[in-house]
Design a protein around this nucleic acid. Structure first.
Length: 275
DNA sequence: AGCGGAACCTGTCGGC
DNA sequence: TGCCGACAGGTTCCGC
């Protein structure tokens, strides 16, 4: 479900809400396949610990605990963190909840159970985190980085931007939007891209992500913030989900194709493959 | 090397 | 109404 801006939104809200609070109890309603590692250890590592901070790496949420430990969470398609009052009942999709000393409950809901929760004493021990590529909003995101890494690659640009081992944090919505605004065809081979193309991609990645973060992310169907509010960025989407609607730049119908088994939306006229 | 396919799991929506 | 296929913001593994 969420990409970088949605995760960033949740992280900020969680940081404000739960920093300083202490986990009094952990209840697991369904562990499989969500919780990584063994269950007693998971509970033991969390109970009694204090939330110090909540941060983001790519699409992962990282809860910093004291005594030192980290809860690393990924929401995948339908995971949600919700803060509720003490008397709430678990919903049909509540998988794990953390009762807090303040009287509130930090709830992890996940309809499809693709989400993951992992405990680590040290972030360097996390297999999921070590594989990740550069942050799209960092200064490492440069034409030089891509040219050096991909100048001989015949991979398609859509696939490269979705590859979390290269750039970590972009997903299906924002990649379509970034390539549309850059005027680059999603089926372009990356070895064909020149410095000026990468400059555009980097510029629009920044513009779009920053604007999405300001708007608390995109709500297409069921993304919800901690307080159940929706994001507002969906009103700024130009191509994602707009099959056959007029291109905002030239007016011809937006195309939908499948790449890597995911929908890609683009304009045939504004995003031509270069000869 | 890079792609398509399947898998993980569950729900919604549209067509017939 | 019911059934069936397509599709969903993600990631990983496998085989050609």
């Amino acid at each position: 479900m969420p990409e970088l801006p949605e995760v960033e939104t949740i992280v900020k809200e969680l940081r404000t809400e739960i920093s300083g609070d202490i986990i009094s109890n952990v209840d697991i309603f369904r562990s499989n396949p969500i919780i990584q590692g063994d269950l007693p250890k998971f509970k033991f590592e969390l109970k009694g610990k204090k939330f110090i901070d909540v941060t983001r790496r790519a699409k992962y949420l990282i809860f910093h605990l004291k005594p030192k430990s980290f809860l690393i969470a990924h929401l995948r398609m339908t995971g949600k963190f919700i803060i509720s009052s003490y008397d709430s009942e678990p919903s049909k999709y509540t998988r794990v909840w953390f009762k807090l000393k303040s009287g509130r409950i930090l709830i992890f809901d996940d309809v499809r159970c693709f989400g993951t929760l992992e405990i680590q004493k040290n972030l360097n021990n996390s297999n999921s985190l070590i594989k990740l590529g550069i942050e799209p909003l960092s200064k490492e995101m440069s034409p030089r980085f891509f040219l050096r890494k991909l100048s001989k690659s015949k991979r398609k640009i859509k696939s490269v931007l979705l590859d979390q081992k290269i750039v970590a944090g972009l997903g299906n919505i924002y990649v379509s939007e970034i390539l549309f605004r850059s005027g680059i065809n999603p089926q372009s081979e990356v070895c064909q891209l020149q410095k000026k193309d990468w400059i555009k991609i980097i510029k629009f990645t920044r513009t779009i992500l920053e604007e999405a973060v300001r708007n608390n992310g995109t709500t297409i169907s069921d993304f919800r913030r901690v307080d159940d509010k929706t994001g507002k960025f969906q009103q700024f989407l130009q191509v994602y989900g707009k099959t056959n609607q007029p291109c905002p730049k030239c007016g011809i119908p937006i195309q939908r194709i499948i790449q890597q088994q995911r929908s890609t939306f683009f304009c045939l006229d504004c995003q031509k493959i270069k000869p």
